[in-house]
Design a protein around this nucleic acid. Structure first.
Lengths: 221, 221
DNA sequence: ATAAAATTTTAAGCGAATCTAAAAATTATA
DNA sequence: TATAATTTTTAGATTCGCTTAAAATTTTAT
């Protein structure tokens, strides 16, 4: 079944939101916000995707991916993340500039292209933002990553993953000079607003707002 | 001005047809045939492109590119040919499989992407089919290439360029084992149907139909 | 020179993907 | 639990890129 870029995007975002929400049900309004479309458009499209058996959609309740829909969503993510890897590793883009380009490249239709690209890149397991790249069969390498907001004090972590959807945030990370794989230890957390003091690579200490921490994901070192 | 992939395609094909036709005017029907759309659709789109000052369109007469339109067409060709080069040189695609993929990739919107790709490939001057790749400013490296049908008997040529739009033809070239840069000498031409006997690399002699010769372009060795 | 043939345009319409405004259903609150 | 607030759906409209059929124009042939 050949899908439009629009349909692929819907599936991708349903997948991503259902990951976050933890329960599998995604609400119309959340999708509308993510896609920057009206809720009415979303309802329309969900009906179409439902007709194609790509999602299970129940009026006024929400939507979840079918087996087939999920498979497609994961393959779109695979393409997105492989392309991002290529852009950074081979074309020397900085990570704050690749998202929009990968959003376009992920919809190129050719299985052979993406397989060869995967081969060319040496079957990478994670993309430049630290997100796992699903393999051809759709399997992810998962690692025990938690949000920095949920990390414990005084414990040694490494930065494993960052939210890639805000260019402003990625620029901020560049500015304060934190990169993936850097060591992070929380030394203090302000009760009032959850601002935290963290030490990077056992050297510099900096202050991070809760809003920033929400976009950073770490695993134990 | 941001154009749709469809509009970009129209400009690209108008450019290519005007190259062939030699006079700059492209006819509605020729475009319709090339694009595999109805003549009516073409008329519609030509009006739109005319409104945007990308073409000069005169009813019942034909269409030609404006300065701006030509510039865009050439940049689309640049992208197409750089991507084809990448697909063959880096991803090891054979030349008969790249056209459809490059047709998609040529519409990715990012100047930085294509500049970096050009750099990454080492500023190639010709693509895998022998077509010149325009530089960032739109300049082609032209070479004195003529169609094999117009080549003289007994004179030494090399294959400089082939028509890349028919997969069947490219497969045929693979089968008879002719590649770009191979030496070609016409030893005989049948007056009745223009079938020719040619010698490849001073070794094998083969028979080529006029239809095949129409898709092959040579320059003097 | 005129009739026939071919080309091109116009007109009307369709499906996809969006929108806005308003109605309906659900959920939260007093 | 009744009502207010929120969310979601429905209804109707628009734009884009395409179609077919009919009308207009140009080209070709007799």
């Amino acid at each position: 079944m050949l899908l439009s870029a629009t349909e692929e995007n819907y599936l991708k975002y349903i997948f991503q939101l259902s990951e976050i929400a933890d329960e599998n049900i995604v609400k119309t309004n959340d999708l509308a916000y993510k896609l920057e479309h009206s809720a009415a458009s979303v309802t329309d499209m969900l009906k179409k995707l439902s007709d194609k058996k790509l999602v299970a959609y129940k009026k006024y309740y929400g939507v979840s991916l079918s087996k087939n829909g999920k498979q497609i969503a994961v393959q779109v993510l695979r393409k997105h993340r492989l392309w991002e890897t290529f852009l950074v590793k081979n074309l020397k883009f900085t990570w704050d500039k690749i998202h929009d380009i990968a959003e376009q490249l992920e919809h190129i239709q050719s299985d052979e292209l993406i397989d060869r690209m995967d081969e060319y890149l040496g079957h990478p397991k994670f993309d430049p933002h630290g997100d796992p790249i699903p393999d051809k069969k759709g399997n992810f390498s998962m690692s025990n990553v938690i949000c920095l907001t949920d990390a414990k004090l005084k414990k040694q972590y490494v930065l494993a993953n960052v939210n890639d959807e805000s260019t402003a945030f990625l620029k901020y990370l560049n500015k304060i000079q934190i990169s993936l794989q850097d060591k992070i230890k929380i030394v203090d957390k302000e009760a009032f607003d959850d601002t935290m003091q963290i030490i990077i690579n056992d050297k510099k200490q900096i202050t991070i707002s809760n809003d920033a921490a929400k976009n950073m994901f770490v695993k134990v070192d």
